[in-house]
Design a binder for these strands. Structure first.
Lengths: 360, 360
DNA sequence: TTGTATGCGTTATCAT
DNA sequence: ATGATAACGCATACAA
């Protein structure tokens, strides 16, 4: 602090006024885009070149203006899913000349609450909020009553606030229907959660409850059910595994299904990591992929592996961009609505037509 | 903006003064940790509970105080390498009650310059800077003359500024020596750059030039040379490939080496992606991994694949944390020095002793 | 179009 | 320990 005070050569609008001979009021108007006398503009520009002066954001924020800073809260910046959203957010923010204050809740609701608290005393114009999971921190958001807010990557969390999310049900439907169209009728669904909310046998009963649609797995599960029903395939809870997001969870899911003797010939997973784990383990258990078991997953990009997976493409960067645009509507006093982004099926190497003679 | 002005119920210290009957001066002291009369403290606490009031960061920043906000500029938040550093930065920042303003230069020096420019008019206490590559934007940093600055993940970029980086030379040495100890003497080195600075035949001549040590590949290359020399193995430029950071670059590197007929039996790559590409292609070309060719790479984590790679472990989260600590020294007016983080060899499945009878 | 004067929320100074 | 007041850098109503 001592150092800072000493070295702080930060010049003020007064300094520029003195150097250029133009009044601070005229300077202020100039910086805010109002027209000034050409002769004055010349003087100003000259001094600006020499000094590299920039108006202080803090000072203008005090005056009730926008700071040009928006907040972004993610559960984990390390996870590609959120990193891509963040990338989109920053890209669009840059387009609009805004800065991004980033907070990572590290998967913990406690930390998330802490961040929200800290953000609230900051200089934010608005906040893009990706709740860690169950969104139990909504009460803490009361500090934000007066602040523009957009919820991203989750659906229906906070009433009256715009949400930006994917068409999870559509994705689940596309993935399942694709597998069915390949002649596969025993399709496993591996649902991933940060905090597992219920067992696989409870999933059907619970999936319509109001709080559940904040989970992307649930939305996709609805699409899964819809595709099954459309094809006249009865729902079998033994084909559903409720687990987490990691590689090992995929491994375990494969073993679990094997132990249940349900003999699936198709599987839908929520992430690349789970698909990798599942596939590796399935092979170890003697299944061929994709002949015996075809795999479809949800992801933003084609991931590199020994072979490429068939996947439901998520537009995460666009999600970030749309979030910023939506937030801007709010910041500028306009109305804003939910945005539901489309998903697309990308058929690659892990899904093929069921061979006529499939012994298992 | 209109909306904001209308809804802004942001109360000030004056409001609290009025509500609590305590003067604003006393309030200010209270918020800054000075002691106040117990009866007053009680009144203040009561109102604080009711209102949830927080002092405005912007206002105190104007008064020459620290904002508690530090800046972080990364080339690409999507890349796990930088995401991990960012995670470390945010973790340590949170520990210290600081906020992080994040800028992604998207791999472009143009954008990087833009961000630096924008950051300079912000309310930062300091900046953690990961230059996009060649650091030609240093001139633009003159806006930061007076601002605490730390350069991360690069070495020797800006004189007089603390750098936090890995012991790249040590890593290259460890990786190479490990392969040598397995009886492998024809070790390929696949150097990765964002902008390729020279060809493989020029690498030896150039690696000592001053500007080159900002590239991590170069530092690791030095370690590679050192290990070779120590073992009395002559340097062969045909075993070196200069390329990029992607999966396809690894694929191409394998083909390139094959085309040069150098018959390597060990390889060092800079990233997991390159190693993946290299390995996949090497197998297609008829080599066995790890028997014919053993692979060592640089990475922060054990990556999941069909098998796990032997790797030089990078401590990226710690790198972020150390950067914040170093920056803090500067912010608080103390001296700070470079920090060189150790690396470690983790032997996994992709490196084995050279079989006695290796026909190739 | 320009300049003067006042206010924004906070801290620091100085009496009390 | 407390309270009145000046100051921070900027924006704006108002008078010129």
């Amino acid at each position: 602090m001592a150092m800072r005070d000493i070295e702080k050569i930060q010049l003020s609008i007064k300094d520029i006024s003195r150097l250029s001979g133009v009044s601070i009021a005229t300077l202020s108007r100039f910086f805010n885009g109002q027209s000034v006398r050409p002769s004055n503009e010349a003087k100003i520009q000259k001094i600006l070149q020499e000094t590299g002066y920039r108006p202080s954001i803090a000072a203008r924020f005090i005056k009730g203006h926008n700071s040009g800073v928006i907040g972004l809260i993610v559960p984990e910046i390390t996870h590609p899913f959120f990193a891509l959203i963040a990338e989109g957010v920053m890209r669009e923010a840059r387009n609009q000349g805004k800065l991004v204050l980033l907070g990572s809740s590290e998967g913990s609701m406690e930390i998330e609450k802490q961040i929200i608290d800290r953000f609230s005393q900051s200089i934010l114009d608005g906040l893009i909020y990706i709740p860690v999971a169950k969104a139990e921190n909504i009460p803490a958001l009361k500090s934000f009553r007066n602040l523009p807010l957009v919820v991203t990557a989750r659906k229906g969390i906070i009433p009256g606030v715009p949400h930006v999310y994917h068409d999870g049900e559509g994705g689940g439907y596309l993935a399942t229907k694709h597998l069915i169209s390949l002649g596969r009728h025993r399709i496993a669904f591996i649902a991933s959660f940060w905090d597992v909310p219920c067992t696989n046998t409870e999933l059907l009963a619970n999936h319509k409850k109001s709080f559940m649609h904040s989970f992307s797995s649930i939305e996709r599960f609805k699409g899964y059910l819809k595709a099954l029903e459309e094809a006249g395939i009865p729902y079998n809870p033994n084909l559903v595994v409720v687990t987490g997001y990691g590689h090992m969870h995929g491994v375990d899911a494969a073993s679990e299904l094997k132990g249940r003797f349900v003999d699936c010939n198709g599987v839908v997973t929520m992430t690349q990591a789970v698909a990798n784990g599942f596939t590796a383990q399935a092979k170890r258990l003697g299944y061929r992929v994709p002949e015996d078991i075809s795999v479809v997953l949800f992801d933003a990009n084609e991931s590199k592996a020994d072979y490429t997976f068939t996947y439901i493409e998520l537009h995460l960067i666009r999600m970030g961009q749309e979030s910023v645009r939506t937030l801007n509507e709010l910041i500028e006093g306009r109305e804003a609505q939910d945005i539901c982004l489309d998903v697309e099926l990308r058929v690659r190497e892990t899904s093929v037509k069921l061979p006529a003679e499939a012994p298992r």
